[in-house]
Design a protein around this nucleic acid. Sequence first.
DNA 1: CGAAAATTTGACATGACTCAACTGGAGTGG
DNA 2: CCACTCCAGTTGAGTCATGTCAAATTTTCG
Lengths: 188, 188
Amino acid sequence: MKNQLYKYLNRYAKFDNVDIELIYKNGVIQTYDNKEFLLEQNSVCKYKYFISKGLVRQYKVEDSGNENISAFAIENWWITNLDSFINETNSLNAIQALEETTVLQITKENLEHLYSKIPKLERAFRIISENMLIAFQRKNELHMNKNSEKRYYNFVEKLPNFSQRVPQYMIASYLNITPEYLSEIRKK
Amino acid sequence: MKNQLYKYLNRYAKFDNVDIELIYKNGVIQTYDNKEFLLEQNSVCKYKYFISKGLVRQYKVEDSGNENISAFAIENWWITNLDSFINETNSLNAIQALEETTVLQITKENLEHLYSKIPKLERAFRIISENMLIAFQRKNELHMNKNSEKRYYNFVEKLPNFSQRVPQYMIASYLNITPEYLSEIRKK
DNA sequence: CGAAAATTTGACATGACTCAACTGGAGTGG
DNA sequence: CCACTCCAGTTGAGTCATGTCAAATTTTCG
């Protein structure tokens, strides 16, 4: 895990082993079983999670009972409900493991502490946030301008690994299509 | 402008006048007429723009000829095509002034220079980026789960100033509704 | 005032949804 | 190893939200 973190963070700035050690000490390694919740809907998101191994989904259950998936995340991604994490408000969605998943989880206080001790980390997260913004914009672009069929084919093409690790009805939810209609799309 | 920038940045970290002066010197003040382009579609986005006064839209023209607005920005917002700015690729959309608009525009090189001279700026943009991510997630949430009518009422409620400064057909485009259907929604 | 731009109206078309029933594979337990 | 259940996926009929297109009307502004 330390080695993985080292490699990962050095994509963004030059961190040495002392830095990594400090970051590591300010977090907690935890493993979640399949279906276990990292964050429950309507509770405060206390951690930013670095996924070392596994796969999670972020989703909400509507009043109608419908599930609505807003994101998947895998190895070497960060996941959190930023709004809830930063503002300490109740999260509108949940984060759930879809496989056995190992993470490094860091509280807001510890993260703030790390930012002050390791200014490079500020830089790394500035860049990571910008990358996430770019990804978000691309996803948005797709959703605004493309029909269901194009969204699906784009998804399969861009994230082939996901379409294998995740059941079809979850992909449908992520793409904002009904499972029935996705099935029809696939028939072609 | 300097004073505005000072106030704005001090929301995120403690900058003194020397910092602001340096930032100011690394950018260029420019005023764009109504309808003038800050960035043209299919060209590299050379600047990050801090809007001091005015209003812009970010949009693309599809092959079909349709215009598609992805964002508006006003006073005290930053606007850029991040993907194009960072990766120096051609921008898929344009940025155009909808009123006479005054900005401080900073190139990537100068911004990098500023980051190295003023580490606090790294922190400020880390936070700004996170805030943008939160805003993006909220917008996405709306688009995924709400019908046209709810999106429109949410927009009017949350951004009443925009619905006055921007023509209706542009709001329709931003909300991904046809102008005709928005008109029908408003009839009620 | 007059032209161009924005908005509205109405007839018709369609992508995507709902709901209910059916199929098939993956356990699970006797 | 069969019978049973459960869940994901498929199919089909009917429906609805929203889009398209073309024309009429209103507003804007030089």
